[in-house]
């Protein structure tokens, strides 16, 4: 009974991944002029003769879906190969999709997790601060700045940054993961170079993203500050710092968890535009390349990987939420208050 919350969350995460695999299966079959006609035209160019058997074999090699089999067999085969980590073969790069993704995923996760931590760290601190000095010039100014920064799409800031700091001033690199002169591994030069190359993408997300979190945190804190239990806590003589952290902070941050989960998906999804602008070869970069090259196995593989990353991120957030908010961990419905 105590663990029903975790069981339910786990089941849900698995089911979501399953649903997304099903979606990619349906989409891969629905693409007009998809893999089959691509392979057919390629074969026709090479040998002139088009043999249906050959096409089907090739399509299966690329996408794990063999067009001449019955639908349920196709579906079953697709699920089992994806479950074994086989995402098909990229038509453009002619390498297994899973290899490309394995090389790209750590970088995207790195950029996204740093962005997420900074966005929420800065947002929550500034929001709490403005709530305490509510009505002051600092509060009004910061609120206005937050609103303004939040109304800039992250890709617009990204273009401005890459234009100003990359091309014009040449302060930051305009592409790549690390510099060419560093050795891969856990050494200082490598880490510094990685941070240097990721700085602008991270800045684009953080600068445009922290504003709304600060505003949300500010509103939540102000509401909590007005609650009776805060007054009672003050009357009981609990030190102000403890009230600020344990009472106000905790209760104001809890409702922001939903926002954080949405941000995980938003940022990972945004990596498609972001990594293209910064020529940063992460998952999103390859997904965009795949779209441009009509490389459907890679496109679907990247889509699947992004989704699984987001599902995992949200799953972890859900589990920690259960730890922080006792109401959620008790198996009750966390929406019911």
């Amino acid at each position: 009974m105590i663990n029903s919350y975790y069981v339910q969350r786990t089941a849900q995460a698995i089911f979501t991944v399953f649903a997304v695999i099903t979606i990619t299966f349906v989409l891969i079959r629905q693409i007009p002029g998809g893999p089959t006609s691509y392979v057919r035209s390629q074969l026709a160019q090479q040998s002139g003769s088009v043999d249906m058997e050959q096409i089907n074999t090739l399509v299966e090699a690329y996408t794990n879906v063999r067009p001449d089999e019955p639908l349920y067999v196709q579906y079953f085969n697709y699920i089992t190969s994806v479950a074994q980590g086989d995402l098909g073969t990229s038509m453009y790069y002619s390498t297994p999709v899973s290899e490309i993704m394995a090389a790209a995923v750590p970088w995207t996760v790195f950029v996204m997790s740093v962005s997420l931590v900074l966005t929420f760290g800065i947002g929550i601190s500034l929001g709490a601060l403005t709530a305490y000095v509510e009505g002051s010039r600092f509060d009004v100014g910061l609120t206005l700045i937050s609103i303004f920064l939040n109304s800039i799409p992250y890709y617009v800031l990204a273009i401005i940054l890459v234009y100003a700091l990359g091309y014009q001033l040449d302060w930051f690199p305009i592409g790549g993961l690390v510099g060419g002169d560093v050795t891969v591994g856990l050494n200082l030069g490598f880490i510094a170079s990685a941070i240097y190359h990721a700085a602008l993408p991270i800045a684009s997300f953080v600068v445009t993203g922290f504003g709304i979190q600060a505003l949300t945190m500010r509103g939540n804190s102000i509401r909590v500050l007005g609650e009776d239990y805060i007054r009672v806590a003050r009357l009981r003589g609990i030190p102000p710092s403890e009230i600020a952290l344990q009472y106000v902070g905790r209760n104001a941050i809890l409702p922001m968890y939903t926002g954080m989960m949405i941000s995980i998906g938003f940022m990972f999804g945004g990596s498609i535009i972001m990594e293209e602008i910064f020529a940063y070869p992460g998952v999103g970069y390859y997904m965009f390349r795949a779209i441009s090259a009509s490389d459907y196995p890679l496109m679907m593989g990247a889509f699947l990987i992004i989704t699984i990353a987001v599902v995992l991120g949200i799953f972890v957030a859900d589990l920690t939420y259960g730890k922080i908010d006792p109401r959620a961990g008790q198996g009750g419905n966390r929406e019911s208050y």
Partner: peptide, 22 residues
């Protein structure tokens, strides 16, 4: 809500892009 949660977890932009491409 189960249906909603699944939709909620699928990242919007990649889904939209895949559908828009098709």
């Amino acid at each position: 809500m189960m249906f909603t949660d699944i939709l909620l977890t699928i990242p919007g932009l990649p889904l939209v892009i895949v559908i828009a491409v098709i």
